[in-house]
Simulated assay, not measured.
Amino acid sequence: MTHVAPVGGTAVQDHVALAEIELCGELIIAASAAREDRLSLESIDEVLRVAEERDAPGD
């Protein structure tokens, strides 16, 4: 017997997990495009938009 997921939007989405996956993907792209062996900490912060989070109002 084969079980198939029902059609109709019953999938559960974890928005935090999806955001983390997106950031990991962006890091992988940045690392593959890097001219050096490793990304600098500043480059990683830029990809992860650390400064934007730090400067966001309401924190």
Results as ranks from 00 to 15, higher is better:
residue 49 R to Y: 02
residue 56 A to K: 12
residue 38 R to I: 05
residue 48 L to I: 02
residue 2 T to I: 11
residue 35 R to E: 13
residue 56 A to Y: 08
residue 21 I to M: 11
residue 10 T to Q: 12
residue 49 R to V: 04
residue 31 A to H: 08
residue 29 I to C: 08
residue 16 V to T: 06
residue 32 S to D: 13
residue 45 D to W: 03
residue 28 I to M: 15
residue 14 D to W: 05
residue 52 E to W: 07
residue 25 G to L: 04
residue 31 A to M: 08
residue 18 L to R: 15
residue 38 R to V: 09
residue 9 G to K: 09
residue 16 V to G: 00
residue 8 G to F: 07
residue 11 A to L: 13
residue 38 R to P: 01
residue 29 I to L: 12
residue 28 I to Q: 13
residue 37 D to F: 06
residue 28 I to W: 06
residue 26 E to W: 03
residue 25 G to H: 07
residue 51 A to I: 07
residue 14 D to N: 15
residue 23 L to I: 05
residue 31 A to V: 02
residue 45 D to V: 03
residue 33 A to Y: 00
residue 10 T to R: 13
residue 49 R to K: 15
residue 41 L to E: 13
residue 2 T to C: 03
residue 51 A to V: 11
residue 41 L to P: 02
residue 56 A to F: 07
residue 17 A to F: 10
residue 44 I to K: 02
residue 6 P to Q: 11
residue 26 E to F: 03
residue 57 P to L: 05
residue 12 V to P: 00
residue 32 S to C: 14
residue 39 L to K: 01
residue 39 L to I: 00
residue 35 R to F: 02
residue 32 S to H: 14
residue 3 H to M: 12
residue 2 T to D: 07
residue 55 D to S: 11
residue 47 V to R: 02
residue 40 S to E: 02
residue 7 V to R: 13
residue 22 E to N: 10
residue 20 E to S: 04
residue 35 R to T: 13
residue 38 R to K: 13
residue 32 S to T: 08
residue 18 L to Y: 04
residue 13 Q to L: 14
residue 19 A to Y: 06
residue 3 H to K: 09
residue 17 A to T: 10
residue 47 V to Q: 04
residue 14 D to I: 09
residue 17 A to V: 13
residue 38 R to N: 09
residue 58 G to L: 04
residue 48 L to F: 04
residue 15 H to R: 14
residue 57 P to Y: 06
residue 17 A to P: 00
residue 44 I to W: 01
residue 21 I to Y: 03
residue 24 C to I: 08
residue 14 D to M: 02
residue 47 V to F: 01
residue 26 E to R: 15
residue 30 A to M: 03
residue 24 C to F: 09
residue 2 T to W: 06
residue 6 P to S: 12
residue 30 A to D: 01
residue 58 G to T: 03
residue 42 E to S: 04
residue 8 G to P: 04
residue 5 A to K: 06
residue 13 Q to P: 00
residue 38 R to Y: 12
residue 39 L to D: 02
residue 15 H to T: 11
residue 42 E to Y: 01
residue 19 A to H: 04
residue 8 G to H: 10
residue 39 L to F: 01
residue 17 A to E: 15
residue 45 D to E: 14
